[in-house]
Design a protein around this nucleic acid. Structure first.
Lengths: 159, 159
DNA sequence: CGTTTCTTGACGTTTCTTGACCAACTGGCT
DNA sequence: AGCCAGTTGGTCAAGAAACGTCAAGAAACG
């Protein structure tokens, strides 16, 4: 039913939550064996699910006693999280990327569902006006979108 | 005589009401098959009926094990209350009036602090872009502002 | 009768899975 | 120290499985 990737993702999350540890270490080969898949599947899970924009850092080492270490990025001050977010957003962002980012923030409990709804409606309106009213190019619209998104998120002073 | 779109819309609504679940997950292909239509018909239903402006959030994933998830964030209020809101805002609204209205909604506990912040920042951004980017007249800016405000509040189904 | 909404299908993109091949590190043996 | 074998993890590309977009034509509406 649920995909292999999602199962592995959930398993790693459960490891991280266990004892509230900020990081886990594991063997790629063992994990692959545990899930009955090829080792490179693990890389796919890490590449797609444990990215910096989702708040994770991954380190690894090859050879004997090799390992993969997955750590949650922690922020001491709210400002650090905002800086991190602004870096991820950049000066231009597509609607698709926005959706992914918002989904992620919501899943992490950083945004409530109503807040996310407001963000989506505001961004859609902005984009609609830019397109049909001002006839802006997609690129400029994505710039405006990035600006608005950054400003909205900053206003919440995410903690 | 009910159209295909309406049938599918009703079906999704019934899924949402079932068990009072806030969200449902489904396969586009299966649903299309169930209604004997082409898969992209489902996209049309979602695009036209389950928008953020109507209080829904839709997420999806392509590829193997893909899915479409529909979440109902807000519930519709009686039409008269929504009409009342639209009446108060009208087609043009000044920043000053906006502030009063938002303060009022916040005091009545209809908006949280953070939600109000989001509304204010979105409105201000919109206004700023309209002024400095496109040199719109104050009147037209107040029109855009009224549009955006109505859409934002309607999405939350407040009054 | 013109405009909006709906329906369909061709084509496009993203995500997932697998496997072949590559790169880096360890330890032991000269 | 230097090399070699063994042990790990990394990369990449191909193929399959979903979902998305877009535009043309039909239907419904006012």
């Amino acid at each position: 039913m649920s995909s292999l990737t999602r199962s592995i993702e959930k398993y790693i999350h459960s490891l991280l939550e266990e004892e509230d540890s900020p990081a886990v270490s594991l063997r790629r080969k063992d994990l692959a064996e545990q899930f009955g898949c090829v080792p490179s599947q693990i890389n796919y899970v890490l590449r797609s699910r444990f990215t910096p924009e989702k708040g994770f850092l991954v380190e690894s080492q090859r050879g004997g006693h090799g390992f993969i270490r997955i750590a949650r990025i922690t922020f001491r001050r709210p400002q650090e999280r905002i800086d991190h977010l602004e870096e991820i957003i950049g000066t231009v962002i597509s609607s698709q990327e926005v959706k992914r980012l918002l989904t992620n923030l919501q899943e992490r409990g950083i945004l409530s569902d109503r807040e996310r709804l407001l963000l989506e409606v505001a961004l859609r309106f902005q984009d609609e006006v830019a397109e049909t009213y001002f006839d802006l190019s997609p690129y400029k619209r994505d710039m405006l979108q990035a600006d608005l998104l950054k400003r909205l998120l900053r206003s919440l002073a995410l903690s």
